[in-house]
């Protein structure tokens, strides 16, 4: 409680600087690092989650008052989000690629055939 009465909002400034660094690091990882695409995606998603936690814990006072319910609810919401997104990608596009640039709209059937040939 005493921290709230301080004139200097240290926690907010640390969180803000951390977020700036993470944003720039993610931008660099995407366009400047030359890492394999899968590692770019993994690393920038990890940095996004860290930044989200900075917002929740350092800016939004997630753990105050009914903190345990609020933390549980946020974890549940993130779990639901992961299931919806990963589940959709898994069921709808796992093992399926589409070369939209080469063959316009007809590409999907051709690739379905290719996949069947591979089996």
């Amino acid at each position: 409680m005493s921290a709230e009465n301080e004139k200097f909002p240290k926690q907010h400034i640390v969180g803000f600087l951390g977020s700036l660094v993470l944003t720039l690091a993610a931008a660099w990882a995407a366009v400047g690092s030359g890492l394999p695409t899968i590692w770019i995606i993994v690393s920038i998603m990890v940095m996004a989650v860290v930044q989200a936690f900075i917002q929740l814990f350092m800016f939004m006072h997630l753990t105050e008052k009914n903190g345990s319910i609020q933390v549980g609810n946020m974890l549940h919401a993130f779990f639901i989000a992961a299931v919806i997104i990963a589940g959709s990608v898994w069921t709808m596009s796992f093992g399926f690629s589409h070369n939209h640039s080469d063959d316009g709209g007809g590409g999907e059937e051709m690739q379905m055939e290719e996949q069947e040939h591979n089996h």
Partner: peptide, 29 residues
């Protein structure tokens, strides 16, 4: 506390939109 629960529901809403985006990624016709 109730507003936190609302934000949890908002996360679910945005998750469905992110999932749609991810599934339709690349389909630019």
């Amino acid at each position: 506390l109730g507003f936190w629960l609302f934000l949890g529901a908002e996360i679910a809403l945005f998750a469905t939109l992110f999932a749609t985006y991810a599934v339709l990624f690349g389909r630019t016709a």
